[in-house]
Nucleic acid binder design. Structure first.
Lengths: 142, 142
DNA sequence: TCCTAAATTGGATTTATTACAAATATAAAG
DNA sequence: CTTTATATTTGTAATAAATCCAATTTAGGA
């Protein structure tokens, strides 16, 4: 998520470079917290009081199409966004919803094979580890 | 998802065996379509006109706690339910939302290792293949 | 500086899910 | 078979995420 790259991409796409978009891009830069759209909105609304949630959603959608962010389906009820689009996996704490990165690992070949046999054109593979994070384990396991 | 087993489990849990619960369990038996709560509700509402969506959610929640169904986070906005709780993976069509089963495949050991190193107590691993199913591929790729 | 197409805003809408109080019905006891 | 306690269902309202849309604003080229 390099800002210069993104600004260039915006220009190339003939898309306007608004302060809102720039703010969203900048807030996402280097962010490893895997925020939701509303998280991003809340972060920025003090600095941009007129910012609208719709704009956050629109911008995330656009960044997704540009290949600059990935949408993660870790949480059953909301999408989380990840500015790191290099292949990697995630651990998700089922108690506090914390997300941490895991390294990239080649998915089992047998799965891709079987998906293709079923007629699927494979676009992506996600591996998600579900567990209880250190902090939550300490809190409840007294 | 064996009905006799479930009835026995209900009894053991001291939980009442209502027609609604039985209908939901029966409709799920052997179902490989990965329905949402609303799908299940729609299927049953003709036969059980008084059935409420809340009851469907309650029952799914209970079956989940009994270990008889798994909740899948494949779709960004809704949960899908799977009465096959044996370990296996899924392919998800990003166009039509179709879901197919994939065999079980051992997740990469390096991921579990890393999650544990981060302090997580690992509970589950999900591998999801995203792609375009045969039918959708044929429709749009003229 | 002006102008227009593109973008933002905010309020309303849709969809999934949960909360809750009142009505109902299971299943055990008599 | 009837009664009864209480677990469960129901329906409606409340939440929450995400989308829609018309009116307003603005980026950026002329």
């Amino acid at each position: 998520m390099d800002i210069k790259t993104i600004i260039r991409k915006y220009r190339e796409m003939g898309v306007r470079l608004t302060p809102q978009r720039l703010a969203i891009v900048k807030s996402l830069e280097g962010d490893r917290s895997h925020p939701s759209a509303i998280d991003i909105y809340n972060r920025l609304k003090d600095e941009y009081p007129s910012l609208s949630l719709t704009t956050v959603y629109n911008t995330l959608q656009m960044l997704k199409e540009m290949g600059e962010v990935a949408e993660l389906n870790l949480h059953p009820e909301k999408s989380l966004y990840d500015p790191d689009v290099t292949p990697h996996s995630h651990v998700y704490c089922i108690r506090c919803e914390r997300v941490d990165d895991l390294p990239y690992a080649e998915p089992p070949e047998a799965l891709l094979k079987k998906a293709q046999d079923l007629g699927y054109k494979v676009k992506d593979v996600a591996t998600i580890v579900y567990g209880i994070c250190k902090r939550c384990g300490e809190i409840r396991d007294h």
